[in-house]
C-alpha cells in the first residue's frame, strides 16, 4: 500500500501556482527528503498532506483517504513545523500528557527521556522557549506520537549544530526501532543525506526528481579539463553547471548518461572525472537559469 498517492496536484494562491501538476507516490516505511529552494512548494505540499490546506485541483490520498477533514488521516499523521501551537495555559509537562491522550501509539517513555535529555523542565511554557528550543520540543512530540506518517517541515530551524546532530541520530534510532514513513523537508541536505533513502526534489511547484539517494549520487558527474577541448566536447551534452577555474581550466557538471562513453572520452581528451555530492546536484538542478549571484554584481 502506498502511504501517499498524489496525482496531478495543483495548488494556487491567487494567480500564482505553489504546486503545479505534481504526481508522486511514497511507499511505506521510507524516509524521504523533500528538497527544494525557498518557495518551491515544500511547505504547501506538506500542509496539503496533513489536511490543513486543500488542493485547487488534482488528487491526493493519504492512507487511501483524502486528508482534508479526514480524522483517520489526522490520527495517523503528524506535521511538525514551527507553527505548532500549544496553549499558554498548559506547561510543557501537561502538553505531553495532552498529546498522549490524542495519539494511541504515544511513546511516553521516549518523550520523557528526550525531554530530560534536552533539559526541558515541566513547568516551562511553550511560548517562553527560544526558537531552537521550540523546534526541539515540537520534534519530541513528533517522534513520540509514533504516527505512521510523520512529517517534519524544516525541523531544525533555530537549532544549534549539536542539537541538529542529536536530532538526526534520535530520528534514525527511533526509525530503526519503529519503522514508519517519514518525510523531512530541509535545506540541510548534506547533513541528512545518510539518513534519507529517497529524495523528492521540487522546483517551482514541480517535481524534478524522485530518486533514491544512491541513484541521485550517480545522476551527475563533474568533468574538469582544458577549456577549449572541454567546451567543444560539452556541446551536445546536458550541462547542469559550469565554472571557470583560472583562465584555461573549466569545471562542468553533466548528466551521467552513457557513463561508459564519458569515461572513454575523458581518458582520450585528458579530462578529470569527479563525483558530485548530492547536495550540489540538487543545487544545480534547482538553480535559476540566469546564472548565479555573481551576475547580479556584474
Amino acid at each position: 500500500m502506498k502511504v501517499v498517492n498524489c496525482e496531478g496536484l495543483v495548488k494556487k494562491y491567487g494567480r500564482s501556482k505553489a504546486l503545479n501538476d505534481l504526481s508522486f507516490q511514497i511507499s511505506e516505511n521510507k524516509i524521504t527528503g523533500l528538497i527544494g529552494r525557498n518557495g518551491a512548494g515544500k511547505t504547501t505540499l506538506l500542509k496539503i498532506m496533513a489536511g490543513f490546506q486543500k488542493q485547487t485541483s488534482g488528487e491526493i490520498k493519504v492512507f487511501n483517504e483524502h486528508p482534508y477533514n479526514s480524522l483517520f488521516a489526522s490520527a495517523n499523521s503528524i506535521l511538525v513545523d514551527d507553527q505548532m501551537a500549544f496553549p499558554i495555559a498548559l506547561n510543557l509537562g501537561e502538553v505531553l500528557e495532552a498529546a498522549a491522550s490524542f495519539y494511541p501509539k504515544w511513546d511516553g517513555r521516549l518523550a520523557r527521556r528526550l525531554f530530560d535529555y534536552f533539559s526541558f523542565r515541566n513547568n516551562q511554557r511553550h511560548s517562553e522557549l527560544s526558537k531552537g528550543m521550540k523546534s526541539t520540543f515540537n520534534i519530541i512530540v513528533g517522534l513520540a506520537s509514533r504516527c505512521s506518517l510523520t512529517m517534519f517541515d524544516e525541523p531544525t530551524t533555530g537549532m544549534d549544530a549539536s542539537v541538529r546532530k542529536d536530532f538526526y541520530r534520535a530520528l534514525l534510532k527511533d526509525y530503526i526501532a519503529n519503522p514508519r514513513t517519514i518525510i523531512i523537508s530541509s535545506h540541510h541536505l548534506e547533513e541528512m543525506e545518510d539518513l534519507l533513502e529517497d529524495i523528492l526534489l521540487l522546483k517551482d511547484g514541480e517535481k524534478i526528481l524522485h530518486l533514491t539517494v544512491s541513484d541521485l549520487k550517480e545522476y551527475a558527474i563533474g568533468v574538469k579539463g582544458n577549456a577549449n577541448a572541454l567546451l567543444e566536447w560539452l556541446d551536445d551534452k546536458e550541462v547542469l553547471y559550469k565554472k571557470e577555474i583560472g583562465t584555461s581550466v573549466i569545471y562542468a557538471v553533466i548528466e551521467n548518461v552513457y557513463s561508459e562513453k564519458i569515461r572513454q572520452d575523458a581518458s582520450k581528451f585528458g579530462f578529470e572525472l569527479l563525483p558530485v555530492s548530492s547536495n550540489d546536484i540538487c543545487i544545480y538542478l534547482t538553480g535559476k537559469e540566469k546564472g548565479g549571484i555573481d551576475d547580479v554584481f556584474k
Binding site: 477533514n69 480524522l71 489526522s74 507553527q83 496553549p87 495532552a98 490524542f102 495519539y103
Partner: peptide, 13 residues
Amino acid sequence: RNEDFSFVSNRLS
C-alpha cells in the same frame, strides 16, 4: 484553532 490542529483533529471535531 492552530492549537487544535497540533494534535488529532478535523474541522468538525
